[in-house]
């Protein structure tokens, strides 16, 4: 029975691939390719991002305040791809730069961490809205 429901959900998701609109403020091509046929996967990934990024950014900013380069590097390394998964490839590139500069213990990394914080927080309304719409789409398919 569970398998039948899963299959039905998948079919509905495939049928609605074209119908689901990804947020234009994010990397639509990446999101459509990655989650278009599997919206519940998309909802899960956005959910993890939304629930963890604030904590990670706070930790990154705190370590920047203390010029704790190894911790900056470790956090940047850990989160850099997370931005890609929610259609923010530009922030992934920025975080990769932070990782490199932190490895080299360059002072300029501090301002880059600030920039990342500002840009990420600017993007969060779009990310959160995308998360809600993905959740709604998945719920909609289940209710069908």
């Amino acid at each position: 029975m569970d398998k039948l429901v899963d299959d039905l959900t998948q079919t509905l998701e495939s049928d609605n691939r074209g119908a689901f609109e990804f947020d234009k403020g994010l990397d639509v091509t990446f999101l459509a390719t990655t989650y278009g046929a599997n919206l519940s996967f998309g909802a899960k990934m956005f959910g993890i991002f939304v629930s963890s990024i604030h904590h990670e950014l706070d930790a990154l900013e705190a370590s920047a305040t203390h010029k704790d380069y190894p911790t900056i590097r470790a956090i940047a390394h850990k989160i850099k791809n997370n931005f890609t998964w929610v259609g923010l490839a530009e922030l992934s590139t920025l975080t990769a730069q932070i990782e490199t500069l932190a490895r080299q213990e360059k002072n300029s990394v501090i301002s880059l961490v600030d920039t990342l914080g500002i840009k990420c927080r600017e993007c969060m309304p779009s990310v959160e809205a995308q998360y809600r719409s993905l959740q709604a789409a998945v719920r909609g398919h289940r209710d069908h």
Binding site: F41, M45, K78, N81, W85
Partner: peptide, 12 residues
């Protein structure tokens, strides 16, 4: 993998 999003992507 120490990153939950990467784990989830691989699981998928």
């Amino acid at each position: 993998d120490d990153n939950l999003m990467e784990i989830e992507a691989l699981r998928n």
